[in-house]
Amino acid sequence: MEQNCKIVGTKMYVYLMGEVDHHYVKEIKKEIDGKLGFYIIKELILDFTNVQFMDSAGIGLIMHGYQYMKNVLGSITCVGMSQRIKKSLAAAGVFTYISEEKQEKYQEEV
């Protein structure tokens, strides 16, 4: 699998691509968990800009990241979400515990 994660200091950017279903999440979770276990990460940024499809497996991935970051007293942010993705995250109550940020804030670092 190609590199989907980029580390800048204590931030880790994860670039999600294509169709985020259970099949995709199984694979990218291994990559994310490998990096989180190796580096000191305080801020996890999930980038949805290139996501064409997402089902509840994507929500599971966000919950997984949230749990991990909470345990290390870090934070998680989601950027680049389509209206459709935002709607499904809202239905699952995800925005009550993660922040949804404007992409511009991160653009210069990418």
Partner: peptide, 14 residues
């Protein structure tokens, strides 16, 4: 424990 969102049936329904 496997980070399933528990939203599958909710989405199918809506």
């Amino acid at each position: 424990d496997e980070e399933r969102a528990g939203m599958g049936f909710t989405f199918m329904d809506t």
